[in-house]
Simulated assay, not measured.
Amino acid sequence: MTPVDHTGGCQCGRIRYTVALDHDEAYLCHCRMCQRATGGFVATFVQVPTRAVAWVTEPDWYASSPIARRPFCSACGTPLGFMFMQDSGNMDLTLGSFDRPEAFRPVAHAGCESMHEAWLDTRDLPRHFSATTQSVASRWQAAGLEVPE
């Protein structure tokens, strides 16, 4: 696969990155460290060569454990990834921080000892869309804005 440039960043736009990738693979991590770091039942990542990431603005970093550190935006709080302290040549970027997360496909689960099975298959649950949920749409309209995607 020919390398493709992907862009991404934090919610407020202060931190931006570009990364050239020759794959479209992502994975889900269910470990408790990732659950706590992201506030979700699972974290989704794209593993990338560290040298392939070009930060437009360097992110903030914190040591999330004795073996890892995580980039984030201190202005808006967006978690941007994961990296082992002992550099392996790779790091992980959060799938949701990519401008086009739909460009990636899930290929594996990690940290399965903390997996919440009931949350994996939700296809039978009712689906509500932000633009048609009155409590959300009315607030965006009151702010003079359209509901974002």
Score class of each variant (00 low, 15 high):
residue 52 A to G: 00
residue 11 Q to T: 07
residue 133 T to K: 12
residue 90 N to D: 13
residue 42 V to W: 03
residue 44 T to P: 05
residue 94 T to V: 09
residue 15 I to A: 09
residue 26 A to F: 04
residue 37 A to W: 02
residue 111 G to N: 03
residue 88 S to C: 09
residue 12 C to D: 08
residue 51 R to Q: 13
residue 7 T to C: 10
residue 145 L to R: 14
residue 134 Q to M: 08
residue 30 H to T: 00
residue 23 H to M: 08
residue 45 F to A: 13
residue 143 A to Y: 03
residue 107 V to Y: 04
residue 120 L to E: 13
residue 4 V to S: 07
residue 105 R to G: 09
residue 115 M to N: 03
residue 53 V to F: 07
residue 114 S to I: 00
residue 81 G to A: 02
residue 107 V to M: 10
residue 6 H to K: 11
residue 50 T to F: 02
residue 29 C to P: 10
residue 144 G to F: 03
residue 10 C to R: 13
residue 81 G to F: 07
residue 137 A to F: 10
residue 27 Y to P: 01
residue 81 G to P: 08
residue 12 C to E: 10
residue 52 A to D: 02
residue 97 S to Q: 08
residue 125 L to K: 15
residue 70 R to N: 05
residue 80 L to W: 13
residue 140 W to L: 10
residue 38 T to K: 02
residue 64 S to L: 03
residue 114 S to R: 09
residue 57 T to M: 10
residue 8 G to T: 01
residue 36 R to V: 01
residue 71 P to L: 04
residue 119 W to I: 00
residue 2 T to W: 06
residue 136 V to M: 15
residue 32 R to S: 15
residue 109 H to Y: 04
residue 81 G to Q: 05
residue 12 C to G: 10
residue 62 Y to F: 15
residue 83 M to R: 12
residue 136 V to L: 15
residue 120 L to R: 12
residue 40 G to C: 06
residue 57 T to P: 07
residue 28 L to I: 06
residue 89 G to A: 13
residue 135 S to V: 13
residue 3 P to E: 11
residue 36 R to P: 03
residue 70 R to V: 03
residue 109 H to R: 05
residue 26 A to M: 14
residue 112 C to Y: 00
residue 53 V to H: 07
residue 86 Q to K: 15
residue 77 G to E: 09
residue 96 G to Q: 05
residue 111 G to A: 01
residue 58 E to G: 00
residue 94 T to G: 06
residue 149 E to Q: 09
residue 80 L to F: 14
residue 46 V to C: 05
residue 130 S to G: 14
residue 71 P to H: 03
residue 42 V to Q: 06
residue 106 P to R: 08
residue 93 L to T: 02
residue 87 D to Y: 10
residue 42 V to Y: 02
residue 72 F to A: 06
residue 140 W to V: 06
residue 130 S to T: 08
residue 119 W to P: 00
residue 147 V to A: 06
residue 70 R to W: 08
residue 106 P to S: 00
residue 101 P to R: 03
residue 4 V to D: 02
residue 149 E to Y: 01
residue 91 M to F: 01
residue 132 T to R: 12
residue 25 E to N: 08
residue 5 D to Y: 00
residue 8 G to Y: 04
residue 116 H to T: 10
residue 19 V to T: 05
residue 8 G to M: 02
residue 20 A to Y: 07
residue 29 C to F: 04
residue 83 M to L: 08
residue 62 Y to A: 04
residue 130 S to W: 15
residue 6 H to R: 14
residue 118 A to V: 11
residue 134 Q to N: 11
residue 122 T to V: 15
residue 43 A to I: 00
residue 79 P to R: 04
residue 68 A to L: 02
residue 143 A to P: 04
residue 93 L to V: 02
residue 93 L to N: 04
residue 133 T to A: 12
residue 110 A to E: 07
residue 43 A to Y: 03
residue 79 P to A: 09
residue 37 A to K: 01
residue 142 A to Q: 14
residue 41 F to I: 10
residue 48 V to P: 06
residue 27 Y to F: 15
residue 16 R to P: 08
residue 74 S to D: 13
residue 118 A to I: 11
residue 50 T to N: 06
residue 60 D to C: 07
residue 33 M to K: 01
residue 18 T to D: 08
residue 5 D to H: 06
residue 129 F to Q: 13
residue 88 S to I: 11
residue 115 M to F: 05
residue 87 D to E: 15
residue 46 V to L: 11
residue 129 F to M: 12
residue 104 F to S: 07
residue 20 A to F: 04
residue 131 A to Q: 14
residue 122 T to N: 13
